[in-house]
Design a binder for these strands. Structure first.
Length: 576
DNA sequence: GGTCGGGGCGCG
DNA sequence: AAAGCGCGCCCCGACC
């Protein structure tokens, strides 16, 4: 059953049960306590909540201690559909439509605008919002059903919506983070925490390195954070460097180069994940970033604040399970090449991907050299062709023609300005107007074409080449995540067996759902479950099952396996 | 005083 | 010569 919901003020809401096609047979019901109403429906059986945006609605429910099992997130679904159908343009020009404009879009367009325009917070027109929600949702169901592969697209919408639930829950639960461990890590590398005044004071080790760098430039004062100043300082010593990035400095013969490499590494840690980061982002033993579901065009997540998806490996030492709990870290091994194998239906390739080390299985085609197999595959997926890669690509093309053709035709489509789609139907953005005008063939073949046109065209080819793989891998990961979330919720905790339990001050007392094993991190092809020790086994079993299930749901019958490596650890740093 | 693009680098 | 994809965040320096 689907139930549409719009939240009112003070925990109230307007609800309405929907028919299968999304139509509304009954009048809406006003409830004073939404979380109680949600609890009631969740107890009674299978309900899918239809709401405008989980990111907007779900955190309040979680704060009230209430979880939902399933939802249809109209905002997330709408983005997937807009990506597929192209944005209708007011000027009547085609907007990159894939399947042509749907008839009678005007009404649903108006409903959507009502739904997402800023409402009057003091006196929201709940009935109007619910109408708009129900109309938009029904329109979405029709458009999903009209997809070339409706079941796949419906799976994508369901998984994306579930992603919205996971994201809110992970923010609420937080990633266990030991501020004391982080602090001593920083102190060990940078020196003790400098006093907050004067602001911007360098920690001891950085100040020392900066002084040594000045000295290495013969006493010239140089700001080591300024690439421009550094390039000029090197030039003054007769060393010409095109930039000051690591790969350049590594090969520079000057006493400052080595110091700069060390300085940059530590300065980066200090700036991005130093004490200021710790103060802003970690509280009560938890790091609580905000995740942006579908924030990357490929369907990968992005994050807002705290750089949650770029936590440096050295800081994994600070990610420690609560007493009586462990971290179960699961990582999809060689996900993207396996996804390519499944996408392309290349039999020889797929059989190599049936298990174990994929690159090793393919090494035979490359004279037994695993490293060469890896370079060839990464080049095929990323569009690299420099150096040795070109020749290895030739080998790949001969031995695994279908896998090669799959990415080649995606690249060609992109170069020609077309869009491409992931296995479940996420669509890449169309080229910009600027790209179109740049790459357009001029009517006069003799007139010189913009020299940037070829480069722009090839760049888009690399983007679409990579998109089909990266976005399909994201499809798989999202389905995995949704399935794992569902399974974790079904694991019950042996009563009173949860060790000392987590420090109570670090946990939201209402978060009863976080008393059991729950997701605390998701990074593209890797998840972390914070898990009470007594239920490690069922959690590992759930991970095994869901890995199988995700491959089957997303790719259907394929010999390709998507193995998950798991580690049960107290500290994230020990997982690899 | 603020914004914005580029350089650089963290993650996958 | 350009040079493998996708992000977020920091700092700098140019600019308003």
């Amino acid at each position: 059953m689907r139930v549409a919901v719009v939240a009112g003020t003070g925990g109230s809401a307007l609800l309405c049960e929907l028919a299968e096609d999304g139509s509304r047979p009954d009048d809406p019901v006003h409830v004073n306590d939404l979380s109680a109403a949600v609890a009631h429906y969740e107890r009674c059986g299978q309900v899918r909540w239809v709401w405008a945006s989980g990111a907007a609605s779900y955190p309040a429910l979680l704060r009230a201690g209430q979880r939902v099992a399933r939802c249809h997130d109209v905002a997330l679904a709408g983005r997937l559909l807009v990506g597929r159908d192209g944005q209708a343009r007011a000027d009547g020009q085609p907007g990159g439509a894939v399947t042509g404009p749907a008839p009678d879009r005007a009404a649903s367009q108006a409903a959507q605008e009502t739904l997402f325009e800023p409402a009057d917070a003091a006196a929201p027109d709940l009935a109007g919002l619910l109408d708009a929600l129900v109309t938009t949702h029904a329109d979405q169901l029709r458009r999903i059903a009209a997809d070339e592969h409706p079941a796949r697209f419906a799976l994508l919408v369901a998984a994306e919506s579930a992603g919205g639930l996971v994201a809110a829950e992970m923010t609420s639960a937080g990633l266990p983070w030991r501020a004391d461990v982080h602090d001593s890590l920083l102190a060990g590398l940078l020196g003790p925490r400098p006093p907050s005044v004067p602001a911007g004071a360098r920690p001891a080790r950085l100040a020392e390195l900066a002084a040594q760098i000045d000295e290495a430039f013969g006493g010239r004062r140089v700001n080591p954070d300024s690439p421009g100043q550094l390039i000029r300082a090197f030039a003054a010593d007769g060393v010409r460097v095109p930039s000051t990035r690591f790969s350049v400095l590594r090969d520079v013969d000057h006493p400052a180069a080595r110091l700069l490499i060390e300085y940059k590494e530590l300065a980066r840690l200090h700036a991005a994940n130093g004490w200021a980061w710790l103060d802003s982002w970690v509280s009560g033993g938890r790091f609580r970033p905000e995740y942006v579901v579908g924030g990357v065009v490929s369907g990968r997540w992005a994050s807002r604040g705290g750089g949650a998806l770029q936590i440096p490996k050295v800081l994994r030492r600070a990610v420690v399970a609560d007493p009586g709990w462990v971290l179960v870290v699961a990582d999809a091994a060689q996900l993207e090449p396996r996804v390519l194998a499944a996408l392309a239906g290349d039999r020889a390739f797929a059989e190599a991907a049936a298990g174990g080390d994929l690159y090793l299985a393919l090494a035979g085609a490359f004279g037994g050299d695993r490293a060469k197999a890896k370079v060839a595959l990464l080049s095929a997926m990323y569009g690299g062709a420099g150096g040795e890669a070109g020749q290895l690509l030739g080998v790949l093309r001969r031995r695994f023609p279908l896998a090669s053709q799959y990415v080649e035709s995606a690249a060609q489509a992109g170069q020609e300005g077309h869009v491409v789609r992931s296995v479940l139907g996420r669509t890449c953005p169309p080229p910009s107007a600027q790209w179109r005008s740049l790459t357009e063939e001029s009517g006069d073949p003799e007139s010189s074409r913009d020299p940037g046109a070829g480069a722009a065209s090839r760049a888009r080819g690399r983007f679409t080449r990579n998109f089909v793989v990266q976005a399909s891998a994201a499809d798989w990961a999202l389905v995995l995540l949704a399935g794992l979330r569902r399974r974790l919720a079904m694991i019950s905790i042996p009563n009173g067996d949860v060790g000392a339990g987590p420090p109570t001050q670090s946990r939201d007392p209402a978060a009863a759902w976080a008393q059991g094993p729950h997701l605390v991190f998701f990074q593209h092809d890797e998840v972390i479950v914070h898990c009470p020790e007594p239920v490690v086994e069922p959690v590992l079993a759930a991970i095994r099952e869901v890995g199988e299930e995700a491959g089957r749901l997303v790719f259907g019958a394929t010999p390709v396996r998507f193995p998950l490596t798991t580690a049960v650890v107290n500290c994230y740093a020990d997982a690899k």
